[in-house]
């Protein structure tokens, strides 16, 4: 049987993030996610430290590991210098490698993030760009954002930008040679494999649930499902 603890140890951040946790609970006390969600980083560190394989597998399939907001407040406060947020990040990585992330509603959202931020990085060299923040999917951005979105070149360039043009400056086009090197880095270092895992397992889940999914982009039923679905069972 797969030893999940040994797999976690293969990520250097697990060694950086967890050493002899004494379960004081300061991380939970300071954690914004623990205030909002049914979430307890102290408990997660405790489970991982027990090395109980079944309990770690349950974690990898759970909603719990997806509640952290990665603010790293836990790192600043832990008296042992641990970083539960790093432990969470390693658990999430393993969950995606093994395909366990599709077992939870919050885990399945990784597909929506891969199809937006993940694909943006490889296509345009930005995690986020004005053109990718569509007001229809971001009503919280308000009417000023819609006005800016519709007049991006006029406004960004007035403020010294270089919107969708070559050369230096804000919002410039990032040249193909640069993008090609970034893509090669992704291929060599596991970034592309992670993306492929997210795609493959998500397509399996879409098939199981009779939800339509396209090979690219965000205009498909499964994307919208993972972007919008909220069972409202997560909060305290």
């Amino acid at each position: 049987m797969t030893n999940y603890y040994n797999l976690l140890l293969q990520d250097i951040r697990f060694k950086e993030g967890l050493s002899a946790c004494m379960n004081c609970g300061v991380c939970t006390a300071i954690c914004p996610a623990a205030e909002f969600y049914k979430y307890d980083p102290r408990q997660i560190c405790n489970i991982v430290q027990t090395r109980d394989n079944e309990k770690i597998e349950d974690l990898l399939k759970s909603e719990t590991i997806w509640y952290c907001g990665q603010c790293m407040s836990c790192k600043a406060r832990c008296p042992r210098g641990n970083a539960p947020a790093l432990v969470i990040s390693v658990l999430r990585k393993l969950s995606q490698e093994l395909g366990f992330f599709i077992e939870s509603e919050k885990g399945r959202q990784q597909f929506a993030i891969k199809r937006s931020v993940g694909d943006n990085i490889l296509k345009i060299g930005y995690c986020v760009h004005v053109d990718t923040v569509d007001p229809k999917l971001h009503p919280e951005q308000g009417p000023v954002w819609k006005w800016y979105f519709e007049n991006a070149e006029e406004l960004a360039d007035r403020m010294g930008g270089n919107y969708n043009k070559y050369g230096p400056g804000a919002l410039r086009i990032i040249g193909e040679k640069n993008l090609e090197e970034v893509r090669k880095i992704f291929e060599l270092t596991g970034g592309s494999q992670l993306h492929q895992n997210i795609e493959n397992f998500s397509k399996e889940k879409a098939k199981l649930t009779n939800t339509s999914i396209e090979n690219e982009g965000i205009n498909n039923e499964y994307y919208l499902h993972t972007y919008i679905e909220n069972s409202n069972k997560h909060q305290k």
Partner: peptide, 30 residues
């Protein structure tokens, strides 16, 4: 210097777990 060849550090992707740490380290190295 404002170099036109620069690109994302992957930070938002890294902290939303769609970019592994090895990849982020190497993109930063570039």
């Amino acid at each position: 210097i404002d170099d036109p060849n620069q690109h994302t550090c992957t930070g938002i992707g890294y902290h939303s777990d769609v970019v592994p740490f090895d990849t982020t380290m190497t993109v930063c190295a570039r």
